[in-house]
Design a protein around this nucleic acid. Structure first.
Lengths: 136, 136
DNA sequence: CCGTATCCGTCATGATACTG
DNA sequence: CAGTATCATGACGGATACGG
């Protein structure tokens, strides 16, 4: 299915990484994962990976996001250090959003996952159809 | 920050992949992405990437998941074709969950993302602290 | 143009109790 | 052991209106 093999040791290591922390509940890895997990975050990061965009441009680029969620998601991405926000004192003011180095770094594995989804969404949809058919 | 470079053309291509579909709202790529995006899905897939587990074993392995969410998340992962569920007719019955080929394939890029989170969660937490400090 | 504030409905999640 | 059913709640997300 895929040529790459992840050896057993790595798998155990990475599972442990998702369960470390003061207590199980606040594992830093899962905490950080949540920040790139929202409904709009992956899409906006992917858009900004191409080039910087202004607020209104993003709004037009992603027509089915509400202004509220665009503001909020960009704010969260900025807080996590993935996105840089720069205000230009024009009249009326314009605001440009761009990926930081950290954001570009995070986009590398995110990109891999999106690419997997693009290549395999047919298989997933078929699996869903088969599963739903078996229920009936 | 990271040696790997994703060229511009690929970025544009992959953004388009996230916006294709009959209409913008039901893009198959984002649809599939949602299925691996939940609060518990990445953790369970990572656990099962190590080896198959029974229901009760997963429950003990992930102490802060409720029985309801464990059932539901495994059900969704099974429906999407990532997880295989096998019932053994013992008394009382035992049920084993394991990754399918599709699930193992999906774990490859997921693993990359988790690994990134492990390596960079300090940077993210520092970014959050700096952002929150700047607010005050 | 770029937000913020408010209201409100829906969905995700958890606690608890019960079953084959 | 491996679930299902039911209920409660808080987070998420959209629509609308207003402000700098």
């Amino acid at each position: 299915m895929d040529g790459k093999i992840v050896n057993l040791k790595s798998k155990i290591e990475i599972y442990k990484a998702m369960t470390d922390g003061a207590n199980f509940a606040d594992c830093p890895v899962r905490d950080v994962m949540q920040g790139m997990n929202g409904k709009w975050s992956p899409l906006l990061v992917t858009a900004l990976a191409e080039k910087p965009y202004r607020f209104g441009e993003l709004r037009r680029l992603v027509p089915d996001i509400s202004q509220r969620m665009l503001t909020q998601t960009l704010h969260e991405l900025q807080r996590d250090g993935y996105v840089h926000r720069e205000v230009f004192p024009t009249k009326p003011p314009s605001v440009e959003y761009s990926l930081t180095d950290l954001g570009r770094s995070m986009f590398v594995p995110l990109y891999q996952l999106v690419q997997w989804a693009e290549l395999n969404h047919d298989a997933v949809r078929e699996a869903r159809a088969a599963f739903d058919a078996a229920q009936a």
